[in-house]
């Protein structure tokens, strides 16, 4: 899995992004093949979240391009030049890169099942009945069979995040984006959420995940990408990244995670 496959699901080419005068992404290239799991690690502020948010155009990149299955995400070329895509086009593309958020971001007025059903009905054109079935199937899979009709406020953090994952993966996106999805959880709840991600990885789903759980990244990722100051410094298999790493910046970053253990 070292070389990027010929037909990548995600092809990021030279994207740049500035907030004001601060250039946060300084030309990022990344290709992710079908079924690959890519973990992004790196110091705080190195641009991991921004990179992930550019993939589904929650953040508008300034230069370069992001393609999902060959389709440019945020812009299209028309007779009179490069144009930002319409809201409707963006919606159709975004659903192919569904995202799981650090703070869960569940819809508080909807039950667990309704949170999952909304996108299925509105973006995937399912009937309410079909959507309900799919939602129940997925929620059961992640251990929430008893919680279909619970509101997010009635769920623990770990349960909420499992709904968050379900809401995204039920859309059957081409790639799943996960941004530090266990950072807001109490340590004892991290394991139940990572177990779900691991299962999704095992069944061959394409995923890009930003994480501070090094042991987890090592276990689940096909490739680990190390970002620093808006650039990708290293893009290699976990063994290469975590063992006997010659790169000074990566070594010093990793030394902060001396204890490579994952609570389960």
């Amino acid at each position: 899995m070292t070389a990027a496959p010929a037909e990548p699901v995600i092809r990021i080419a030279g994207i740049t992004k500035s907030f004001g005068s601060h250039q946060v992404l300084k030309g990022i290239d990344l290709a992710v093949g079908k079924g690959e799991v890519v973990a992004i690690i790196g110091p705080s502020g190195s641009g991991k979240t921004t990179l992930l948010r550019c993939i589904n155009f929650l953040e508008e990149y300034d230069g370069g391009s992001v393609r999902i299955d060959g389709v440019e995400v945020g812009y299209k070329d028309t007779a009179d030049g490069r144009r930002r895509r319409s809201d409707r086009e963006l919606a159709r593309i975004r659903v192919e890169a569904a995202m799981v958020f650090q703070q869960f971001n569940l819809f508080p007025h909807l039950t667990a099942a309704q949170n999952v059903m909304l996108g299925l009905v509105k973006s995937r054109g399912k009937s309410k009945g079909e959507a309900r079935q799919i939602a129940e199937k997925w929620l059961t899979r992640v251990g929430l069979a008893a919680k279909f009709d619970a509101l997010p406020s009635q769920l623990s953090g770990g349960q909420q995040q499992r709904v968050g994952i379900t809401r995204a993966v039920a859309m059957e996106p081409k790639v799943l984006l996960l941004d530090e999805i266990t950072s807001a959880l109490d340590p004892e709840l991290v394991g139940e959420v990572l177990a779900v991600v691991q299962e999704l990885a095992a069944e061959g789903r394409t995923m890009i995940l930003v994480t501070h759980e090094m042991a987890f990244a090592r276990e689940v990722a096909d490739r680990v990408v190390f970002t620093d100051q808006g650039r990708i410094v290293i893009d290699a298999p976990p063994a290469t990244v975590f063992d006997d790493q010659p790169n000074e910046r990566l070594r010093s970053f990793l030394s902060r995670f001396a204890a490579f253990h994952r609570p389960r």
């Binding site: 929650l58 659903v95 890169a97 569904a98 995202m99 703070q103 971001n105 819809f107 995937r124």
Partner: peptide
């Protein structure tokens, strides 16, 4: 705004 972003990320139109 998180709410709008979550809605966007599952493909909801405006």
């Amino acid at each position: 705004v998180d709410q709008m972003e979550a809605a966007k990320s599952i493909g909801l139109t405006l």
